[in-house]
Amino acid sequence: MFNTKTIIAALAMVAASALAAPAAQAAGEAPHIEKQDWSFAGIFGTYDENQLQRGFQIFREVCSSCHGARLIAFRNLAEPGGPGFSEAQIKALAAEYEIADSTAEGGVRPGVPADRWPSPFATEQDARDANGGALPPDFSVLAKARGVTDAFPWWLTNYFTGYSEGGPDYIHALLTGYHDEAPEGFDLPEGKSYNDVFPGHAIGMAPPLMDEMIAYTPGEDGVEVPMTVDQYSKDVSAYMMWMAEPGLVARKETGFRVLLFLFLFAGLMWATKRRIWKGIEH
């Protein structure tokens, strides 16, 4: 059916189509980013509910004082494939926040599950003023707006493994990549911190996490999760990935069924085609 030349040509085409963005990223001096084992990686990947709840706790107690998540509605937190909060929990949570509503008395009202996560600052300028001129990025899709660069030719394998966890890997590396002091000879501007993976190394955000900073309550199974910067970073990265891609679990489940179907249908089509062409020399 296919001769050698055909296969070579196919490989050339695959290579051509695969030579995409990563080649560009390969250029700049890319800091090494340690890839983590994420529960949501791979064909059967799903979010770990407990991890998302812990990540949400960090987001709420630490990050959300500066970072918004304008695309996230409170109701999302109770939707399947997410942190798995109950409807009642979400209702109570939403009610703790004040939502700007021009039709409400006084312009604000308590939140309801349908509301979006309120921004910590009214305007972009307010956000900059409160953060030394730097704008804390919105978290809604941040985990998909960051990536990891692999050296040639290793990024080619990503197309076959479906590696889509570059965002959380980067965020984890960033949160664990702070140094108390900049290396010798690095001119760190006033008010900035030194970070291994942040482009240019001088980051406006001071190290946001410290060991033992947030108290985790042990889960029902009694397993105690370590309260370390590394663990906090993993949890909040996972949570940010969920915010960016809340439908990931459903998408992969559907995809698995679609692929099974396609393999079955391809097999049948192959047999049908062969049967029809039987007796025709071609």
Binding site: F261, L264, F265, L268, M269, A271, T272, R275
Partner: peptide, 10 residues
């Protein structure tokens, strides 16, 4: 049978 099966799956 093959044609019917293929058609049905399609």
């Amino acid at each position: 049978f093959l044609f019917v099966a293929t058609g049905a799956v399609g």
